[in-house]
Amino acid sequence: MIASYIINVTFKKTRYTGDAFIIRPKAETMKLKDINIAIIRIEGTNCEQESYDAFKRLGANPEFVHLKQLLHIDCIADETREILDYHCLMIPGGFSAGDYIRAGAIFAARIKSQLQRQLVEFVKQDRPILGVCNGFQVLIELGLLPGFDEIIHPIPDACLYLNDSNRFECRPTLLKHENRGTCVFTAKIQKNEIRLIPSAHAEGKLLFPLEKQEQYLNKLEKHDQIVFRYVDPEGNYAGYPWNPNGSPMNVAGICNPQGTVFGMMPHPERTYYRHQHSDWTGTQLGQNIGDGRAIFESVLAYLSKKF
């Protein structure tokens, strides 16, 4: 199912200028404060505070939820939670369980062992899931992304592999928005617009089984699942360092065919405000709206209409 969401295209920003274009939220049906978002964490999750803040600042109701609360382990009475208590799930960045084996694999395995059925139900109801950085790695390991043909694949179809540089890369990255309207997390961003959303990861190269790589990339393109691609300040698909990990086709973020499950390596919560941009002293703060904020605004707008 494709989200029935129309974007008002008013102007395109095809070169990075540093001024984000924002559409103000329209009349909404569900109150923002009633939108429950679970920020799911385990040991080694560490971008939860800024992710929580992003939703909170927009008036929604985020909550830190330890995976053990969903698995009902070591909980006393009022500590247990259910996935379906929430309208939206977010798996934030970090190094879940240390990422000592493939990044995100342990977190995904713990979720899958008990919560798979509920997760499928969650996605079936068009409730959105966001994975940023390590969260993206978890969504891939879970088989929720790329999500070809079925909601959750028993075996991952892709992986986020070591950066070509073989190093952790913390640097500003520019993302070109290429989604044609499927992804509910970027509805407020114009197609072809370029945004500054920084990266910080060691394993961000999106790889598919070698023999299927081309076919899969075409499939992503065809089903409008490519959301962001890395570009240079001129808007060109550039190599390192603008593409910090060597992802084929410069892919930085993808969604499932429904547009409700979305994963990206760069961190939108780190440019929620303009003053978090790495080059803000060279320009004006203006209304202090950062380039990453639209991701959170988009999904909240989607939710308030949907539920």
Binding site: E50, G93, F168, H267, Q276, T281, G282
Partner: peptide
């Protein structure tokens, strides 16, 4: 990672992007 927690407003490297 000099930006995790989202509090770093003047970064260790400063200037034009790249």
């Amino acid at each position: 990672d000099h930006e995790v927690r989202g509090n770093t407003v003047i970064k260790p490297l400063q200037g034009k992007l790249g």
